[in-house]
């Protein structure tokens, strides 16, 4: 065996020497500037015509707490409806059947193409179109009794959400390698079983970040249901300031609650992501 050739001279030994930290002057300067601007804004609000005692007093009154509960109930139920519709519509959209495909595309077009607040108002005022609803000969009721603010908000928010979620789910399903469909078929699975057992679980990993985004959007979109008298957080805050005229204070109360809810949701999303990351390298190593 040939001996290793001698190493060339003139390259000093650097082992044991540390790499010095960069000073980053600009970071310090810009951070100081931002703190100063924030301080000015806080000072302006502190000196402005806001009675902060009202904010703290109304932060935990019963009507506001009921409002936040109603907001969360509506957000969760409407999102569940939206995800259900989204999955069904995405599967229809990717089906080889042209009828299903067209129906799915039409649904997305209609509910994504009109403002959410308009859809809520339409659902709430459905009684103007159909005074009575029901199944002929079996059951019928007056539409005003059936279409409560709760049901109108649920249908309006959920069906609108479904149109957006279907696109998220479709993207997730398309992100799964075609070889996974083929492997599922090769062990005798039909299209729907392959979707349920093989494709959707893998798509979940991709769709959870955008779905988390959509859910946070949904929490805030429930405030639109205030226009159809659903007693959610903003609606209840408005009712209080109609009585006591503390408009800004109660809007700040509502804003703080929305911020708190969204802050709690973010770590929950991370837990979910970890659950569906099973089998990926990030978790395995």
């Amino acid at each position: 065996m040939m001996p290793a050739p001698a190493l060339a001279e003139g390259f000093p030994d650097l082992s044991g020497m540390r790499i010095a930290r960069k000073p980053h002057w600009f970071r310090w300067l810009s951070a100081a500037l931002i703190v100063a601007v924030l301080a000015l804004i806080v000072r302006a609000f502190a000196g402005g015509q806001i009675e902060w005692s009202y904010v703290s007093r109304f932060l935990t009154v019963k009507v506001i707490l009921e409002g936040i509960v109603n907001t969360m109930v509506m957000a969760v139920l409407a999102m569940a409806l939206g995800i259900f519709l989204g999955v069904v519509v995405a599967i229809m959209r990717l089906s080889p059947n042209p009828v299903l495909k067209t129906v799915a595309a039409g649904y997305t077009w209609l509910f994504r193409g009109t403002p959410l607040i308009l859809q809520l108002l339409l659902w709430f005022n459905l009684a103007l179109v159909f005074p009575t609803i029901g199944i002929p000969g079996l059951w019928s009721a007056r539409a005003v009794d059936v279409m409560t603010p709760f049901l109108a908000a649920l249908l309006g928010l959920g069906i609108n959400q479904g149109a957006y979620t279907s696109e998220v789910m479709r993207a997730g399903m398309l992100s799964v390698d075609i070889g996974q469909y083929e492997a599922a078929q090769a062990i005798g699975m039909g299209r729907l079983r392959a979707l349920r057992r093989i494709v959707l679980p893998q798509a979940m990993r991709v769709v959870i970040p955008p779905l988390g985004n959509e859910f946070i959007g949904m929490v805030k979109a429930t405030s639109l249901a205030s226009v159809i008298q659903y007693p959610e957080l903003l609606h209840n805050a408005e009712n209080i300031y109609y009585a006591n005229s503390r408009v800004i204070e109660l809007l700040i109360v509502a804003g703080l609650w929305y911020l708190l809810v969204v802050s709690v949701l973010t770590p929950l999303q991370m837990l979910l992501e970890r659950r569906f990351a099973r089998g990926t390298l990030r978790l395995a190593r």
Binding site: D177, G179, Q180, E182, A183, A184, Q185, A186, I187, G188, M189, G190, R191, I198, P201, Q202, R205, F276, R278, G279, T280
Partner: peptide, 25 residues
Amino acid sequence: EREIGRQRLKTGMVFQRFNLFPHKT
């Protein structure tokens, strides 16, 4: 599709790119 699925059970397929289900052990 169901009948084709039943016929497929008589054959086993091994793919160039393995196509194992990554979310399952």
